[in-house]
Amino acid sequence: MAIQQHARKLGLPLMNLVRLNGTPILKQLYLEEKLLRTSSDNWCIINDGADTPAIVMGISGKPSELLKVGSILREQVPVIRRFTGGGTVVVDNGTIFVTLICNKDAVPGVQPYPRSVMYWSGLLYNEVFRGTGDFQLLENDYVFGDRKFGGNAQSITKNRWIHHTSFLWDYKVGNMAYLKQPARAPKYRLARDHTKFICRMKDYMPRSVFIENTIEAIETYFSVQPANLEAIDTSSEANFVHSTRLLTKQELEEACESQPENIGVNV
């Protein structure tokens, strides 16, 4: 409490902190979209793992181009199209999610443009990973050396922006088989397959240390106060319509039929 009061005296903007544990990613994305569209406050959401495994694509993602749909249908893995841009990720309880939802004037010097928000996020996580590995922001990814462990998605409205990161604290090698090599990939990937392109955060930093470091770094820019999830759910607009959604089985089947490797194959 004393730290927060001191921060407010310094004129730092207020940041509401929501800490989740194991919340399904679809529910988290619903919450994020609602807060971006209907709230006028700054929010940080930290979700320590998703109990329900899922595949999440960006708003313009096409399953036929990004996913091996046949195996996804056979194994009944949920596929979600989120309201933000960015790439495709398989999430489960080994994924840590950190989302920042801010008013456009919340951070001095940060303009409501993707490159500006991304640059600032690199400075923020430089503090989180100070002295740990060879951290850098590389072509919109967070990497240790040349191996990715954090993928980002953003959305910017007239007065607000959201920056959402999925951190691979751990991952299952088998899950990477659901993903195709994307047609548009960062140059530093050098056509490497997923297991040679990504790394595990757990090899560099304990899970709890990462979360606490992240909160401390955010406190450099904001006066952070814990927020109650139940209060958020009841205070927002009841009739809000989400653009984030679960893809239907029919949509996935149609995507599967359009993939050359699946023509003539029953799934």
Rank of each mutant, 00 (worst) to 15 (best):
T95D: 09
L66S: 02
L123S: 10
L124D: 04
G70W: 11
V91L: 11
N93P: 14
R82N: 03
S64C: 13
G70K: 13
G94P: 03
V117Y: 03
V89H: 10
G131E: 07
E139M: 13
G150D: 00
V69L: 05
R82E: 11
E65F: 06
L66R: 01
V117M: 05
P114Q: 01
V77H: 07
Y119A: 14
P114E: 08
G122V: 11
N93D: 15
G86E: 00
Y142A: 11
V98I: 14
E127W: 06
K148T: 12
P78K: 06
E127K: 11
S60K: 04
G85Y: 12
L123E: 13
G133P: 02
L138V: 03
P63C: 05
F144E: 01
S60Y: 14
R130Q: 11
V98L: 12
Y125P: 01
D105N: 15
K68N: 15
Y125E: 00
G85W: 07
F83A: 04
V69N: 01
D141E: 15
I101P: 04
Y113L: 12
G61T: 00
F144T: 00
G70E: 06
S121A: 13
V90N: 01
T84R: 02
S60A: 08
G151Q: 04
V98P: 05
N103I: 09
T132N: 03
W120G: 00
E139Y: 08
T88Q: 04
Y119T: 15
L66H: 02
R81Q: 11
V143S: 08
T132L: 09
V143N: 02
T95R: 00
I96E: 04
P78C: 08
G131L: 06
V79A: 07
V110Y: 01
R130H: 14
R81C: 12
S116G: 05
I80A: 05
Q111Y: 10
F129P: 00
M118E: 13
R147T: 14
N126H: 14
W120N: 01
V117H: 04
C102Y: 05
Y113R: 12
G85C: 06
V89P: 04
F97R: 04
Q136A: 15
R147Q: 08
G61D: 02
D134M: 10
G133F: 07
R147L: 07
C102E: 02
T132D: 03
G145I: 09
S60F: 10
C102Q: 06
I80W: 00
N103P: 01
I96L: 15
L100Q: 00
R82F: 09
S116Q: 05
